[in-house]
Amino acid sequence: MIWWLKTRLVHTVLACGVAAFGLLTFLFQDGTVVLPAISVTAGNTVLLAGFTPLLVVGALVQSLDSRLTTAEVTGTRPVAWLDTGLVVVTMITVAALTAVGGFLLDSPAVVAAGRNSLFLTGLALCARGWTGRSSIVFPTAWIFLVVLVGHRTADDFFPWAVTGLALGSSTAAVAAGASLLLGISLNHHMTTRQGSRP
């Protein structure tokens, strides 16, 4: 177990990623920035906390990507299950962290950042079985997509731009759950089938 935790950089990269995410999200809270956009001409206001979930996703992708290939293919350890467990535990940690933080700071944007972390992690995990560490490109591209063409008007998002939607939106909540479930299942399936990826 300790061997596996060290290989996956849980105590270094993943812990630091989640900590940095928490710190920045709590710092930004409901702070916004005005950015250029394609879909609206002016006043494209975006939550700063919309960007921080990528730290969790990035750290998780790097963590899952850090392997001891030869030792892991021997099959003496249930590596796929351990990986899935790692993802689940990280997601529970992030959700709990943002739920508590959002409650204490009275900031819905913090809780939404936790929800978005689930969605974006799911997005990356869906692709990870095929693209390996390049899967981080998909959540990053998604964030840019929402910033540039996600706005219908200056303060309203299209329904597909789920990471931009407010905390109360059921579409966004369902999308986050579905994305994470699909991502975890696909990632688990691909890890068992292929063993470790190069």
Binding site: L55, D65, F144
Partner: peptide, 11 residues
């Protein structure tokens, strides 16, 4: 590593 560098630098 790219998994962190790509989103951090892009955003």
């Amino acid at each position: 590593k790219p998994a962190l560098a790509v989103p951090v630098m892009a955003c």
